[in-house]
Design a protein around this nucleic acid. Structure first.
Length: 238
DNA sequence: AGGGTCAACGCGATGC
DNA sequence: GCATCGCGTTGACCCT
């Protein structure tokens, strides 16, 4: 449809819809597009200045009546897209131009889309916040575990020192060879909400294995110190 | 005055 | 080639 035809259509709709009355309204601009649109505006301004239709043929924008808007809204809820026959029927029922009905549907779809995007954004944001919170909890738990590990190392050192001392007297303090093992049993507590997400399960397993091997190593060392080494020495003395 | 809303415009893309 | 769409934008209008 040419611009002239479009303007004729619009003019017809102004007649059909008395709230419309002439004035300059149809101009446009843009960034990359702005230059382009400035050009267009200039062309139109010049065209008006040249005397086409006395510069008084544009229309002020008028809102659709509540009744029209309600009717269109109902129609939109039934069907988002607009077949030509339906468009024409709606237009005649509402005393609007078919072009107006088409434009209304275009704009309504745009509003609907932006609303959906807002909702989607809210959901993503909530998910993001939840992950941040989980991360905080995990960091906290990691710190606690590091503290426990340090304690265990300290305990191990003490035990080994005791075992070394026992190598010369070997009897007294070698009794509790695994006091720290019970404190390790909580190492694999992962937040239920995170298991299965973002590879946490795999990471959990990996951490578990890593930890268990370290635990096995510690146990081995303790056993070696308290039983093997001490026993060997003890045997030598017995 | 300034911001939000909405009808309308123009353009490029797409399908027929 | 035309109709229609989505998108970006404009300008009128309304509200605070």
């Amino acid at each position: 449809m040419s611009r002239e035809e479009g303007e004729k259509m619009m003019f017809a709709s102004f007649v059909a819809f008395p709230d419309y009355f002439p004035e300059d309204a149809a101009t446009s601009g843009g960034e990359k597009k702005k230059a382009r649109q400035r050009r267009r505006r200039k062309v139109r301004t010049e065209a008006r200045a040249a005397g086409e239709s006395g510069g008084d043929e544009q229309a002020k924008k008028r809102r659709l009546s509540d009744e029209q808007a309600r009717f269109l809204e109902m129609s939109f809820n039934k069907e988002r897209k607009l077949e030509t026959p339906r468009k024409v029927q709606l237009a005649s029922e509402l005393g609007l131009d078919a072009k107006q009905v088409a434009v209304w549907f275009q704009n309504r779809r745009a509003r609907h889309k932006s609303k959906l995007m807002e909702e989607e954004f809210a959901k993503l944001r909530a998910a993001h916040d939840a992950v941040v919170l989980q991360n905080f909890h995990l960091e906290t738990e990691l710190l606690k575990l590091k503290e426990r590990l340090a304690d265990a190392e300290e305990e191990k050192t003490k035990l080994m020192a005791g075992a070394a001392a026992a190598a010369t007297g070997c009897g007294g303090g070698g009794g509790g060879s695994s006091p720290s093992s019970s404190s390790f049993s909580t190492v694999t507590t992962y937040h239920p909400a995170l298991v299965g997400q973002f590879g946490v399960e795999a990471a959990a397993e990996e951490a578990d294995l890593t930890y268990m091997s370290e635990y096995a190593y510690n146990s081995y060392m303790l056993d070696w110190a308290a039983a093997g080494y001490c026993g060997g020495v003890y045997d030598q003395f017995s």
